[in-house]
Design a protein around this nucleic acid. Structure first.
Length: 442
RNA sequence: GGAGGAAUGGGUGAGUGGCUGAAACCACCGGUUUGCUAAACCGACGUACGGGUAUAACCUGUACCGCGGGUUCGAAUCCCGCUUCCUCCGCCA
């Protein structure tokens, strides 16, 4: 078997630099936004560097274009002279053009390296937080957007955490996962496996009912795709890689699904584009493991149903609210206590402009578990992947993208098991009965 | 894995060295005609990056005919490498 070596590994595509225009025109807003992300004055210097580099890029471009224009003009003339049989005159002009060749070559090389440097700098700039994003550095600074007002499920003192319930009812097995793969790859079995499948079905059906097209994407993606949604170059360490093939296991369906429209100019009438996908998700989650990430709280492989929208910029914040409502509805139907957080500048992801996190209360652990993250990326992703649309005036414009988990399974399972445990067994919420085929785990 | 063929604008497809950013047709858009629809006719119809005091449609330069490189004064057109797709054979869920 021959292994395909990805040559794009070495060649970063030099393309449109729209982001620079925005930085130039709205420098103040950009700088303030980065400060909200707690950038130091030293870090902010990047913006200056970018603008300087862009100046160089533009003057270089002008110089190069002028020479090329002159050469084109002369070449045309040579053609005409040849046609008229004026060979000697043509030869003279040939020398003239040939003399410029070295200059063109070096200008082109310069331009390439400037663009490469510029691109690399641009890749280090995260998305600018929306006005409503609160200041802050840590998760403690996140704002409570919606609290849980009703009482939590009351459990007896000897209530079990989900990992103990899993043992008691034979729902999933971590040690077995270690044997097959390694830590963080649980094996689900029996009613544990069926509960997961039921949840997948339920979430997909709900998304389709809400108008999302069901997509079944590849679980491995190439580099361009990973870059499009912002996994590269920032979150490289987060993904599992297949180096021989230059491919990455997806950390979320967002990656392949959003990239479906990479390098496209969609018609206004096609917006909004609503897609949903169920996929396993793979995350390396390099970092500390301990009591707080026990059981299903954090695993390397989990199932998730993602919803993605590509929308007109005017609509994206309305859409964000609609997606928040959709996720709320799911948790409601699952009868899980939840709250919504508006993430602060320090806790928000690199690519996001505004993010709402959903947390469910897992009653035996007495902990809030993040089960969904709904974000508006505005033009951050579409700029990278050149996803545009033609607006009312026929002008080409970057669309906005959004996505959210609806929902992530492992932690939902954890909360469902813990919150619904009774002396007789674990009660399955009504909404799932037709999917599980059973009402109790006992 | 072996052998052959192909890659052009939203689609079909012409184009084998200069007058081709690219014919023609279809689709889309604007208009005329029409009681409405259809048809017919007319017109416009790529993207990106620069420049012109130009962050609404103006003028202008450059680049782009799968990707990268080469030959040439000049390349969609010639040469080399790569990728992808199709056909046939083999293998296989």
């Amino acid at each position: 078997m021959k292994f395909a070596l990805s040559c794009s590994t070495f060649l970063i595509k030099i393309e449109k630099m729209l982001q620079v225009k925005v930085i130039r025109e709205e420098q103040k807003r950009i700088l303030n936004g980065l400060r909200k992300r707690n950038w130091s004055a030293k870090q902010l210097k990047v913006i200056e560097d970018i603008l300087l580099l862009d100046d160089r890029r533009r003057s270089n471009q002008t110089e190069l274009d002028n020479i090329l224009a002159e050469n084109n003009r002369l070449s045309k003339q040579i053609g005409q002279l040849m046609g008229q049989g004026k060979k000697a005159e043509a030869e003279d002009l040939k020398l003239l053009v040939a003399a410029q060749k070295e200059k063109v070559k070096s200008l082109e090389e310069q331009q390439r390296s400037i663009e490469l440097d510029l691109e690399n700098l641009l890749y280090t700039v995260p998305n600018i937080p929306h006005k409503s994003v609160p200041r802050g550095k840590t998760p403690e600074d996140n704002q409570l957007a919606k609290d849980w007002k009703k009482p939590f499920p009351s459990l007896p003192d000897d209530a079990l955490a989900h990992w103990d319930l899993a043992k008691k009812y034979q729902l999933f097995d971590f040690e077995l996962g270690v044997k097959l793969t390694g830590a963080g790859f649980p094996v689900y079995r029996g009613k544990g496996a069926r509960l997961q499948r039921a949840l997948v079905q339920f979430f997909l059906d709900e998304a389709v009912k809400a108008g999302f097209e069901e997509i079944n994407p590849p679980l491995l993606v190439n580099e361009d795709t990973a870059r499009g949604t912002g996994q590269l170059p920032d979150k490289e360490a987060q993904m599992y890689t297949c180096e021989r093939d230059g491919l990455f296991l997806i950390p979320t369906a967002e990656v392949p699904v959003t990239n479906i429209y990479r390098d496209e100019i969609v018609a206004l009438k096609d917006l909004p584009i609503k897609m949903t996908a169920y996929t396993p998700c793979f995350r390396r989650e390099a970092g500390a493991w301990g009591a707080h990430v026990r059981g299903l709280n954090r695993v390397h492989q989990f199932e998730k149903i993602e919803i993605v929208q590509i929308v007109h910029p005017d609509q994206s914040y309305k859409t964000l609210q609609a997606m928040v409502r959709h996720v709320s509805g799911l948790l409601h139907k699952l009868e899980l206590p939840y709250r919504i957080l508006r993430l602060c500048g320090g806790d928000m992801g690199f690519a996001s402009a505004l993010t709402f996190d959903f947390e469910v209360f897992s009653a035996a652990q007495k902990r809030w578990l993040e089960v969904s993250s709904v974000s508006n990326f505005e033009t951050f992703q579409t700029n990278r992947m050149k996803l545009r649309f033609r607006d009312e005036n026929g002008k080409v414009e970057l669309a906005h993208t959004l996505n959210g988990s609806a929902l992530a399974l492992a932690r939902i399972v954890a909360a469902l098991l813990e919150n619904n445990q009774t002396a007789e067994g674990i009660r399955i919420p009504k909404a799932l009965h037709k999917y599980t085929g059973f009402k109790m785990i006992d």
